[in-house]
């Protein structure tokens, strides 16, 4: 799955942000773009990133598995990354997570059978004053002040988009 020429051009642009010989710095920004294309990070794509940056494949795997935003296994089309940390729980995040599990009939970390949703509780999203909160890639828009009703309409909306 070679990268499009547009992506390759973008990669070269990103590499220019760093001094000569320091282009490994481009790894995280590039992985975000690759994940945008595939929804996750297949090994073949990571190997190509290694080639683009002239680093060893293991260096890419080491990084991709360290950061929680990168999915190294296939995920649903919409990954619901919902905050599970203390301040959000003070305002009801646990209820919302429980509701999502029941509504989607999946456990944390699982994907719905139709491949549409993955439920992924995450740690604090710096939105503690507007919790409960979740976000969905690749634009990672914040959905704040979550209520059961908001969850219902969000899920409906995403289902109808398919």
């Amino acid at each position: 799955m070679p990268f499009t020429s547009e992506r390759l051009k973008q990669f070269e642009e990103i590499k220019k942000r760093y001094p000569e010989g320091r282009h490994k710095s481009a790894l995280l920004p590039i992985l975000h773009l690759v994940q945008e294309d595939h929804g996750w990070l297949p090994v073949a794509a990571m190997d190509e990133v290694a080639e683009v940056l002239d680093i060893k494949p293991i260096e890419v795997y080491e990084v991709a598995t360290f950061y929680t935003m990168f999915h190294v296994k296939p995920v649903g089309k919409y990954v619901l990354e919902i905050c599970r940390t203390g301040p959000c729980c003070l305002v009801g995040a646990e209820n919302i997570i429980q509701y999502l599990k029941e509504k989607l009939n999946i456990e944390e970390g699982e994907t719905t059978k139709d491949g549409l949703f993955t439920l992924k509780p995450v740690e604090c999203l710096a939105s503690c004053g507007t919790g409960p909160v979740l976000q969905i890639g690749p634009d990672y828009k914040y959905h704040e002040h979550l209520t059961i009703e908001k969850i219902d309409s969000l899920i409906d909306e995403l289902r109808s988009k398919g």
């Binding site: 942000r17 920004p29 992985l31 975000h32 950061y67 935003m69 740690e123």
Partner: peptide
Amino acid sequence: LDLYVQAGGGAY
């Protein structure tokens, strides 16, 4: 001066 924004990847 050149100024760039760098994205992290999810790690406190």
